[in-house]
């Protein structure tokens, strides 16, 4: 009886370790591809990400730059220092409003940021932490109230 118990325990533990090892291998590989860095417009200007790399860009949408009427919507995000033009194909989330924060995922093509996803937040009062920090860095932050 004990022999069987021990054998089963060894086998199952072995199996467990194998699965866990595989899991960490997969996590390691997948993370390498999927981690996206956050850049503020100033960081893009000063220290641009390598070409073709997917990253997240965030800042405030500059007044008067939001264009939703064509098939490719566009707007300019700024952190007070620098600005980057963002182009997005499709219907922008409702909460993309001039003067409010936005985060977009995509890559640079020349001087233009081509977004594949624009983040909608659920609440106009809420500013994504990354953007708040980026604005603070540029001395542009004023708490929304």
């Amino acid at each position: 009886m004990t022999g069987l118990k021990k054998r089963r325990r060894i086998r199952l533990t072995g199996l467990g370790f194998c699965v866990i090892a595989v899991a960490f291998g997969i996590i390691y590989v997948a993370l390498g591809d999927a981690v996206q860095f956050f850049y503020s417009p100033s960081q893009v200007a000063e220290n641009p990400p390598e070409a073709g790399r997917l990253f997240r860009l965030g800042g405030l949408i500059r007044e008067g730059t939001l264009n939703k009427s064509t098939r490719d919507a566009s707007f300019v995000v700024t952190d007070g220092g620098h600005s980057v033009k963002v182009v997005y194909t499709g219907v922008l989330p409702d909460l993309i409003v001039e003067g409010q924060g936005a985060i977009a995922t995509g890559r640079m093509q020349g001087e233009i940021f081509v977004a594949r996803e624009v983040l909608a937040k659920h609440d106009e009062k809420y500013m994504p932490k990354e953007i708040a920090d980026a604005l603070k860095e540029q001395g542009f932050y004023r708490p929304t109230q």
Binding site: L31, D33, A34, V35
Partner: peptide, 18 residues
């Protein structure tokens, strides 16, 4: 100190096999 995010590609690649 860098801000990163982990998107759906990670979960799709790492979660699905299991």
């Amino acid at each position: 100190g860098r801000k990163v995010s982990v998107g759906p590609p990670f979960f799709n690649a790492a979660f699905t096999p299991f």
